[in-house]
């Protein structure tokens, strides 16, 4: 493995460990709140709107697949198709952030305001933090697309590292969706 490639991969691994620790801390806090609460969701919260979280989940899953496709097509030397898939991934990423804003609107319309207690704090706070990372990820996707436009196989490790970050955000969302919205 070339040194630059090894360095890039190592740096991304350390970054993902750091990112994972941030979200693990949040989930640990969530576990404490939830296990200590007499009722979850609290009695004053009727129903959490699930439409947009479901749509967000499908979009982010699709974006993970398109990101994977972009990288594997680039590895095969099919640069044009790879570029198309990376553009589609950016579109999916933007759509995800869009659906998150609609989720926050729905929460508000359902009477779940940010200051409605710790349950609402978690719904808003955790999705805000995840969305912030998604914005960073979108920056990464733009970088990925620009890298693919250079049509240079030496840069494939960069594409692969952006892909790893994007999958990481998808996995975090999967935990959030399951933990916060489904169960």
């Amino acid at each position: 493995m070339r040194r630059a490639e090894l360095q890039g991969n190592l740096a991304m691994t350390v970054t993902l460990v750091s990112g994972a620790m941030l979200f693990i801390t949040l989930f640990m806090g969530y576990a404490v709140y939830r296990t200590n609460a007499p009722f979850w969701p609290p009695l004053n919260i009727d129903k959490v709107p699930l439409t947009w979280p479901w749509i967000s989940s499908m979009i982010i899953a699709l974006s993970s697949w398109t990101c994977y496709q972009a990288r594997s097509l680039a590895q095969k030397g099919e640069w044009k198709s790879a570029q198309l898939f990376s553009l589609f991934t950016i579109f999916c990423g933007l759509s995800f952030v869009g659906t998150q804003t609609l989720l926050w609107r729905d929460l508000k319309m359902s009477g779940i305001m940010v200051d409605s207690g710790v349950f609402a704090s978690i719904l808003y706070g955790f999705t805000w933090i995840h969305a912030l990372h998604m914005v960073l990820g979108l920056g990464g996707l733009v970088f990925l697309h620009l890298t693919l436009l250079k049509v240079d196989s030496k840069n494939l490790y960069k594409v692969m590292n952006v892909e790893r970050f994007w999958h990481f955000l998808g996995i975090v969302w999967a935990f959030m969706f399951a933990g916060l919205f489904l169960f």
């Binding site: 460990v17 750091s18 990112g19 620790m21 941030l22 979200f23 801390t25 949040l26 806090g29 940010v114 200051d115 207690g117 710790v118 609402a120 704090s121 978690i122 808003y124 706070g125 805000w128 933090i129």
Partner: peptide
């Protein structure tokens, strides 16, 4: 490994102070 743990804590504290959450 551990600076992000503090990062998570101060981020939630910041939200409590700025956006009205009650962590």
């Amino acid at each position: 490994i551990f600076v992000p743990v503090l990062g998570a804590g101060v981020m939630l504290l910041l939200m409590d102070r700025m956006f009205g959450t009650t962590f």
